[in-house]
Simulated scan of single mutants.
Amino acid sequence: METLEETELCFPQLLNTSCTRSKVPQFETLFTYIVLSSVSLLTVSLNLLVVISISHFKKLHTPTNLLLLSLAVSDFFVGLLMLFQIIFIDGCWFLGDLMCILYQYLLYIITSASVGTMVLISVDRYVAICDPLHYSTKITQKTVKIWVCLCWIYSVIYPGLNLKDNLKQPGRYNSCFGECVVLLNYVMGIVDLIFSFIVPIILIVLLYMRVFVVAVSQARVMRSHIAAVRLQGSMKVTAKKSELKAARTLGVVVVVFIMCLCPYYCVSLTGLASKDTMFNASSAVFVLCLFYLNSCINPMIYAFFYPWFRKSVKFIVTLKILTSNSHEANIL
């Protein structure tokens, strides 16, 4: 009986004041460890490649790539913070109340910055396709740097306001030792849902719908022009490919974003789970995995689609990046 009690308590020496471990089958726990560890490693690796590529090569210092750099930085830290959730997988938090609230606060900051940067990327693409003649004057490196700074400042201040009670007294909502609970009141929870998910998803969908319509329209105009000059034979296929590529790329961006974030926020809205207790149920683990998976997929859909990324990865893997003047290499 004593052995059973020790295996079920987070802190056996504290007896009645200790939290109990979640009773999860060993296979399920091992599987979850492997999946989350793999996603964490992949997220960190992919985003680190993007950060090194854009930071190192001078040719990649463009407004759009600065936004990709901001996104990669935030997603890189999301991958690192996943390690804390892996530690918390059995329902026991061993790092103390202060680390609990700091972890939650950092996660809020980084996730908010990631979502905000995705909105900025959609604005950048909207101007580039819908108003290409004025793009170079409206979207400059200085403008983008200001956007990114404001995005990160907002991402630091907003979560601080949401978590101010928790920051003042870490662990105030814990009912036992080994628990990591962060609570928002109902009003703040609704506000967080609106500004962290509903508003960004509406902006991204609306902007990308407009971009898609303009891109398809331009492709059709090009196809008509090609037909007029009697080059339909070889160029018509190119026009069709352009339409399909625009539809596929923009569709992936919107659908993946919705698929990864919508389930998590739907669960949060109904109050069936929260960020601190998400790992206590197998169904909730799946929801949170999707939430984190977005940070892993971002470098794939924003960077892997660019040829320069594949070239820069070759430079990094073959260590050519260590040679003198490698930052001047033309990898475009």
Score class of each variant (00 low, 15 high):
241 K>Y: 15
189 G>V: 04
231 L>G: 08
195 F>D: 03
289 C>N: 08
101 I>P: 02
50 V>P: 03
251 G>S: 09
128 A>Q: 03
191 V>S: 10
307 P>A: 08
87 I>N: 09
23 K>H: 12
258 I>Y: 13
247 A>P: 09
85 Q>R: 05
37 S>V: 13
154 Y>E: 07
52 I>M: 09
284 A>N: 14
85 Q>K: 04
56 H>C: 09
149 C>G: 15
99 M>D: 03
211 V>D: 05
198 I>M: 11
209 M>D: 11
198 I>K: 06
46 L>A: 04
101 I>E: 00
152 W>D: 02
196 S>Y: 02
107 L>R: 03
112 S>Q: 07
81 L>S: 07
88 F>R: 00
297 I>S: 02
141 Q>R: 12
33 Y>P: 04
331 I>S: 02
319 L>V: 14
147 W>V: 03
299 P>W: 00
43 T>I: 04
225 H>C: 14
296 C>T: 06
328 E>F: 07
197 F>N: 07
85 Q>S: 07
66 L>W: 05
140 T>A: 13
150 L>V: 07
238 T>K: 07
252 V>K: 04
65 N>C: 03
325 N>Y: 11
315 F>Y: 09
75 D>M: 00
305 F>I: 14
112 S>E: 10
326 S>F: 06
74 S>P: 07
145 K>T: 10
166 N>V: 03
281 A>F: 10
317 V>N: 08
137 T>C: 12
245 K>R: 14
218 Q>D: 15
282 S>I: 10
280 N>A: 07
173 Y>P: 02
90 D>G: 01
207 L>M: 09
227 A>M: 14
92 C>I: 00
200 P>Y: 01
118 M>V: 06
153 I>H: 05
273 A>R: 07
255 V>R: 11
123 V>W: 03
170 P>W: 00
30 L>E: 13
168 K>Y: 09
324 S>V: 12
62 T>H: 06
142 K>D: 08
25 P>V: 10
294 N>C: 13
41 L>A: 13
145 K>N: 14
5 E>P: 08
174 N>K: 05
327 H>V: 11
291 F>A: 05
102 L>I: 05
70 S>T: 00
244 L>E: 10
272 L>N: 15
80 L>F: 07
220 R>T: 07
310 R>G: 13
29 T>M: 09
82 M>F: 06
41 L>H: 10
54 I>H: 03
14 L>P: 05
181 V>R: 02
276 D>Q: 12
183 L>P: 13
116 G>T: 01
91 G>A: 03
170 P>A: 06
